[in-house]
Design a protein around this nucleic acid. Sequence first.
DNA 1: GTCTATACGTCGATAGAC
DNA 2: GTCTATCGACGTATAGAC
Lengths: 201, 201
Amino acid sequence: MKIIYVGDDMNSVETTIINTAITLFAKKGYAATSIRDIASSVDMKSASLYYYMKNKKDLLMLIMDRYLIQLISGAEAELSELNTASADEKLKGLIKYHVRSHGNEQLAALVVDTEYRSLEGNDRIQIKQLRKKYEKIWTNLLEEGESEGVFHFEDKHVSYFAIISLYTCVAHWYRNSGRLSVDEVADKYAILGSNMVLCNK
Amino acid sequence: MKIIYVGDDMNSVETTIINTAITLFAKKGYAATSIRDIASSVDMKSASLYYYMKNKKDLLMLIMDRYLIQLISGAEAELSELNTASADEKLKGLIKYHVRSHGNEQLAALVVDTEYRSLEGNDRIQIKQLRKKYEKIWTNLLEEGESEGVFHFEDKHVSYFAIISLYTCVAHWYRNSGRLSVDEVADKYAILGSNMVLCNK
DNA sequence: GTCTATACGTCGATAGAC
DNA sequence: GTCTATCGACGTATAGAC
């Protein structure tokens, strides 16, 4: 499940630049990555990049915006496919989707997760809203399960943060070269998370 | 439980500079924080800071090194106090200690957690070794509990990363001004984590 | 589209007065 | 101890040739 953005030409220069920026931002951080770093990684001069982008800040915004919009629409699609299932099945499905997305698009997920502090003004507000929209998908599901008597948590907010942080951190430790595939990690994690909130555990 | 480093004079200029650096590194990131930023926050000129430190890189190292050494020795002390307790009690104690440390020294914990990528060469190796030493405390305890038949996990590494990431992320979301005290969060989290690996759940 | 050249600010760090 | 002054490197971004 490689995420393909609508309208992307995977071989275009724009896409190469964006993917290179994602790699460098994830590895060294946005502030420590210079336009010249990105340019030399794609065998161009720094001035040439400005033909494809407005400035460095907009490049970061493009990356974060795209990933979050993709993540949200994918989560909504996943839940709508499961709309007749139990809350527990929906939670497992959502966890698997989240882990797969964070595993397959690991570098972009890392940028989204670590570079929020690099945003200012309206950019920050815009990304905050997208994050809140995604969080809402999870909290709605937890509340749905609770009102159906399927889930129980001593403290809703603590459980919510526990689940969200557990699954987001996958992007920080998962290694593609490791023992487990993304799908295997997703399956194992779905059980862990379900156990955390399920009533009859 | 405010962590006091041995030999610190809490009112010294050095300490003020270090605490200011921790705050700025946590908020904006190491690369995005200039020496002039730190200096103006402590009402000095940038040149004056060099009377107290060798360079910017060493300031970051000092912060990360101190926090990790403190974290490790505190965890060891916690476990040695509990050396006659069950593995489950030890795990709960370790979780509580970790959450309290990450809650009380939140900014330093964030710097340690997010600025590893800003280190190079021997600095990186040195911090990596400290992190591994701390991780070893946790994995030893999980293995001890498993061999005693108290803990069970389908996949040791996945469970280990789940627990570690769950508890480290506390530093990312905890707000001192919020509804819960650090101790309350620590207690609630200890139950969650224990449930994840306990046999008779 | 990609380049060379460059403007202009800010960076980390040092020299040396007080 | 703290300052002013300054160095040289490097940052983003633009102008304009090809």
